[in-house]
């Protein structure tokens, strides 16, 4: 297997990756929005769950979320054919920072200092995991 590392990041590529970050954040924001009125919903059996899901599926937010998932899937496949995974994933994992920011600004949630520290650990971990994609490819015949 010929290994060809594509590492050079062009401006166009960077913009695609940033839009992927934004879209990823949008997906989770939409999903959260779709179930926001159901915060006090108490599910004790399966039919409750059906009612719960039904009302979520009838919000436009959930479908906007699905649409974003589809766009992400198409964009991500295109991006990955042009650039190495170990480069793409770190740039794309900034949604780990974007999601809390969006939660604070648009959902009025609160993020404590300790949580930010935790988020940075997770971010560092994700970046490490993605760098190891080279390790794996190199070790395979």
């Amino acid at each position: 297997m010929k290994i060809n590392f594509k590492k050079k990041i062009t401006v166009k590529m960077l913009l695609s990756l940033i839009s992927l970050d934004v879209l990823e954040t949008l997906v989770h924001f939409c999903f959260k929005k779709s179930v926001l009125p159901e915060g006090d919903f108490y599910v004790s059996n399966l039919s409750d769950l059906a009612v719960f899901l039904k009302s979520a599926f009838f919000t436009p937010y959930l479908w906007l979320g699905f649409l974003s998932v589809l766009i992400i899937f198409i964009m991500w496949s295109t991006v990955l054919s042009k650039i190495d995974l170990s480069v793409a994933v770190p740039v794309c994992s900034f949604s780990y920072l974007l999601v809390p920011i969006v939660s604070i600004v648009f959902l009025g949630e609160r993020v404590t200092m300790l949580r930010w520290v935790g988020i940075f650990f997770i971010l560092a971990g994700v970046i490490f995991v993605s760098f190891s994609s080279q390790e794996k490819e190199l070790s395979q015949p």
Partner: peptide, 13 residues
Amino acid sequence: VGTFLIVVGIILV
């Protein structure tokens, strides 16, 4: 190492 960092992050969160 990355997985371990994620574990630490999750515990902190």
